[in-house]
Nucleic acid binder design. Structure first.
Lengths: 213, 213
DNA sequence: TATTCTTGGTGAAAAATATCACAAAGGTTA
DNA sequence: TAACCTTTGTGATATTTTTCACCAAGAATA
């Protein structure tokens, strides 16, 4: 079965929503595709089609068993055993991610932080061990780290990326304003301030799409 | 002419790339669609088609005049006169965004910060004025703020969003793990740790798309 | 048990998006 | 000026993604 990136994104959103419901013990035994759709902001048929890509797990007339669906998604998406993750660049964004990353149930676990500024490393206190940037390749390989948040400036982004790839990382979320691409690993570019620029442009175009020239 | 959200996103990426080139004075007089495509990670024909949605601005045999294209995009996308923006929630992410937001050429200008913790407001020093959260509606209306970064926890996200909408905001970038929707304004949901979960799932599926069940 | 209501799964239709291929326009060189 | 590059703009095509419509399965009710 084929799964599009859009579908995979929605499935992980469903997974995280279920994780949160379970963590806070706020859920009924089962949930309908319409309810799930409301939670992630898509119509019910999209939810059904997405889930059915992985198999038949729902129950006609009742919906999806919350705990069962959560476990099913964890299994099928490979999130059952969390992957190790690193944060490169311990600035504000980086240290925020280290804190957030301590929640379980997300499919990953932040186990190391890196920064090129050795003084900053020593000055900071952190739940996870911090290392100088030139140790990225070695530590990533030794600890079998598979994922990384890249929160460095545009200058250092490429060098850090190369180190990560040489260390064997399989996926990177890039927060630098530089748009990175790689044939070897998965990269997701997240431009924080770029989102506001896009929003600004969207407002000028009235609707989401369509406009008079 | 109609513009899809995907096209608009790429056009803002081109705009920001050109802005950076101009700011650092590192550019030739003109640039080809192929070069632009390399920079934002899409093929040249996509770049040409996107730009041509706004009009004919390129020059056969030479490409696009960098300064002219930048100005043209600013004009057409409505980024020529920066919109005012606010940051709701002055934690690590929030204060990082306030810093980043001081760059010009992005189509927006951060002019206010808000937090529900009054002590934190007083303790922080910031380039922009900080206010308590219950003043959101008033200040947003008075200052004619059109955009906002929402960097609060899931608990406070909905209340903050309502205040922003009542104040007349037109677009919000939501960083809380809650997926927000609104019929009245544009909302972009950016789930930072969710990106790693998605990446983790993508790795388990080998390619970007396609896989055997 | 018969009836009615709810809800998932899914093939088919529709819409949106991306890709291609090439004519035409401007630049360059001899 | 003529021949040859380079590169844009775009109609046509192909692909992907979403939406729709409805059947069948299970639950609830009487």
């Amino acid at each position: 079965m084929k799964i599009s990136e859009a579908t995979l994104k929605r499935l992980t959103q469903i997974f995280r929503t279920l994780s949160r419901m379970i963590r806070f013990e706020q859920f009924d035994e089962s949930i309908s595709s319409a309810q799930l759709g409301d939670l992630i902001g898509v119509p019910s048929h999209t939810v059904r089609k997405d889930i059915s890509c992985l198999g038949e797990i729902g129950s006609s007339g009742r919906g999806y068993d919350v705990v069962k669906l959560h476990g099913f998604l964890a299994q099928e998406l490979g999130l059952a055993t969390p992957k190790k993750a690193a944060v490169i660049g311990i600035g504000k964004i980086g240290s925020a991610l280290i804190e957030y990353g301590r929640f379980g149930n997300s499919g990953f676990d932040v186990v190391a932080g890196f920064d090129s500024d050795v003084n900053r490393i020593e000055a900071m206190k952190s739940d996870v061990p911090l290392y100088p940037a030139y140790d990225i390749e070695e530590i990533v390989r030794r600890e079998k780290i598979e994922l990384a948040f890249l929160t460095v400036t545009a200058d250092g982004a490429i060098r850090s990326l190369e180190r990560l790839i040489r260390g064997g990382v399989k996926g990177v979320v890039n927060f630098s304003p530089l748009i990175l691409k790689s044939d070897e690993i998965h990269i997701r570019n997240v431009d924080l301030t770029g989102e506001l620029t896009l929003l600004s442009a969207m407002i000028n175009f009235g609707g989401l799409t369509a406009s008079e020239e």
